[in-house]
Nucleic acid binder design. Structure first.
Lengths: 315, 315
DNA sequence: ATAACCATGCACAATAGATGCATGATTGAT
DNA sequence: ATCAATCATGCATCTATTGTGCATGGTTAT
């Protein structure tokens, strides 16, 4: 589906460049080589007769004209997506490719079933799933490598909800639980508040990561500055750290705890009740596409099933 | 300028096909070979996963989906033209190609000076002029072979003024004069009415031509059905026919009479005062482009100069 | 000063895309 | 009813575009 765009691929490349700022990163995202990206951007300028890039130190940056073109192209892309969606609605579309992107747990719990369902209902459809963090998912959407992304929306989101390029649909609010060692004084409790855990040594992800932002946001809400004792990238690692008694951590409800030993999961109560919002994002205009609509439906059903399997008080 | 479009050239080809209905004609208009057009359309369908064409007799015709896509693409094209125009306004554009199209006298009197002026003010600009009749000019605009056309607007215009694809600017209303043999009883008059010439044998262009429509429109306005004695394609031929005493004819004020012998030109008065309206047409959205703006300005100046060189009563 | 980084140019390779002719299918004319 | 004309398409071929990999030159950080 995303392959072979009706808009000049060089413009797409320019748009990706506008997002990541370097030729190398653009190459990585688009799947081209750096030389190809360089050549494409040069060609684009030649064809339009406009200077879009300027040398800037050891890199290049967009000129005012370049920024203008990129900004204006949002509407153009959306217009095309919208047209394609409507055309696909009119005459049913036979075959194409469909790229999905998502983040770890989301990918596992939502994207995998979606891909499986699509594969069976639409055998001719070439479904591809890419695991990527939210920021990269947006990049991949712009680069047209994927057509739908399931991502974790954050309060301090660099990609505003009303971004001209995307349309987002809330799938599910996933609460964060606390995981503590089984021999911890609070381990026998059903629920805790963040204040009760303020003095604990915390295990979190590296600063700048998706969940670190959620972590700090949760604690600033209750006015506490927790002590970060350790950092882990994978949930498994974090759980293991907690199991080893190194500290406590936050774990999304969706993340399974099955391999954990000596670790207890507790619901959080009180005003600082952190949740991560899981949303589906598509390129603006493409939301009317029957393929997207079907996918969103499947995702929504899956999300509702997850919600309904939980105790009421968690909703 | 028109070369190398940002919108997939195959979509442009489809749009041209939608206008002319056959692969062969599309090939002629776009400058491709028939095989290339065929292959492009096939590719387009493959890429979109949509069936856009159906076999119809010995030709092909658009499916409902195809018509839908073409209709919807108007907005997309306009959006791009608009964006390009704005970008060119923002950062001045260095070099490109610029295609002009126009019809005989219009081309000679308006387009040639325009091309000459542009050539001197913008040496880097590659200006190309194509002589073509109005209908073909619109086709060439859609095919992106030309960017601006000077054409004769007609009452019974197949291309409505509010066509989604184009934007038109009135340049000049060019009145039609009567040419009669020098030895004709009315030859000494300054002006005549159409009624006075109702019984004359008329020389006009072939039915279906640009000027035949103007001709009939003028006479239906005064409620007279003239007798068409002869048909001529070129003005020169028509003038020669009149000079040979075969009949009378209509000649636009802009068309020169310099080579004529035994032919007199008379102003037409009365309610049936036929004029041809000369307008500039561009693809919708592109009108904001500095190049287009400059061109329209030059054309307007030229048109005003022509008007001001005429007696007041002709305006 | 050296190393790392970034973009670009060039030679080469792969691929897409156009051409021209031949073919098959359909319509209209003799 | 046959023949010619028209139209689209497939195929072999060629060309031009486009991408890759490596080398180069300029720029920043250590």
């Amino acid at each position: 589906m995303h392959n072979r765009c009706m808009i000049d691929p060089r413009l797409i490349t320019l748009r990706v460049f506008a997002r990541c700022g370097t030729v190398g990163a653009t190459a990585e995202l688009t799947g081209y080589s750096p030389s190809a990206v360089s050549a494409q951007l040069r060609e684009l300028q030649r064809v339009l007769g406009l200077q879009l890039l300027t040398k800037d130190g050891r890199g290049v940056r967009l000129t005012a004209t370049g920024r203008f073109l990129v900004a204006g192209s949002d509407a153009l892309i959306a217009e095309w997506e919208s047209l394609r969606a409507a055309a696909m609605e009119a005459g049913d579309q036979v075959q194409s490719r469909f790229g999905l992107g998502g983040f770890s747990t989301a990918a596992a719990q939502l994207l995998a079933p979606l891909a499986a369902t699509l594969r069976s209902t639409r055998p001719l459809l070439e479904v591809q799933v890419l695991e990527a963090n939210p920021a990269r998912c947006f990049d991949l959407l712009v680069a047209e490598r994927i057509d739908l992304a399931v991502i974790v929306a954050m309060q301090s989101d660099t990609y505003a909800e009303d971004d001209q390029r995307f349309e987002q649909t809330v799938l599910l609010d996933d609460p964060l639980d606390v995981i503590i060692p089984a021999d911890h004084p609070l381990a026998s409790r059903e629920t805790v508040t963040l204040e009760e855990l303020a003095s604990e040594p915390w295990i979190t992800e590296a600063a700048g990561s998706t969940y670190h932002a959620l972590f700090t946001a949760a604690f600033t809400a209750v006015g506490v500055t927790p002590r970060i004792a350790h950092e882990a990238v994978e949930w498994e690692t974090q759980i293991a750290f907690v199991g080893a008694g190194l500290g406590v951590g936050l774990l999304p409800r969706l993340a399974p705890l099955h391999t954990a030993e000596n670790v207890v999961r507790l619901r959080i109560t009180g005003k600082g009740k952190p949740t991560r919002r899981i949303v589906a994002a598509v390129r603006r205009g493409s939301i009317a596409s029957p393929l997207i609509q079907e996918s969103l439906g499947i995702l929504q059903i899956r999300a509702n099933r997850i919600l309904s399997s939980r105790p009421e008080d968690d909703l």
